[in-house]
Amino acid sequence: MELREVASTPALGPLFARAALTQRGRGGALPAHGLLLAAVQVDRAHLLDYQHLCRFAGGDVLPHTYPHVLGFPLQVALMAGRDFPLPLPGLVHLENRITVHRRLTADDRLDVTVHAADLRPHAKGQLVDLVTEVDVDGERVWEGRSTYLRRGRGDANAVAPQSSPPMPQGPPAGVLRLPEGLGRAYAAVSGDVNPIHLHALSAKAMGFPRAIAHGMWTAARTLATLGPEASEPSTSEVWFRKPVLLPSTVELVVDDSGSRTVVGLRSGREGVREHLVLTLDVEAGA
């Protein structure tokens, strides 16, 4: 695949704005090229901001989800491009899968590449994967696959994506309080200034009753509760269900009885509103 190198992290505000105004989704195939951000040097101040906001331990070890934040601007740049078949506004982050091949630290120089893959039908529209890969000196150290849904005319016969394990039941292991300003705080750290996250008013303009939390913040915050093992070789998968409106209080439910840990976020009376299910597999001895 052709990789087009970008000199620096793209600013996302103008990309979202342009996409909102001009993009209609042209159909056709996925872009044949990927984007490369080479030799990224982690900014320790930014890393600590991220660690604090998501409640990871503050230090030199990159959290499981941190490289996603480095790759996300490339995802948006690719999806906002003229040759991207689906319109960026309205794409829903449905699933995310991350594999950490080895512990990463702020000393590592990261080559971050993003490409689109597997445009495919879904019962409620179309799915596409944005694949983020991180190499250090040629070694593949981290991989992420973000699955987005474009709602539209669906294909009832489409192969259903792998479903999540069931939501853990029982009393909550913890309660997370998400303040009203969380979306703005995470936008400042991640660059994801999608208006649905920033303010009730901008969210309303996009059809939401209130601002909603960034899915990847909820995933990161959930992973942070599982301790430092998630920064070691491991694989996580998260299935996003209902968005978390801001502000709100959600319950964390954990099932660690099996070989992999399953965590859920839920809210509402009796926890009927399910927000996400996340699994974490820690590689033993590797």
Binding site: L48, Q51, G58, G59
Partner: peptide, 14 residues
Amino acid sequence: STYAKASNQDMLTA
């Protein structure tokens, strides 16, 4: 400087 963003909890934990 280097620890400008590090909290007391970060440093004590480290």
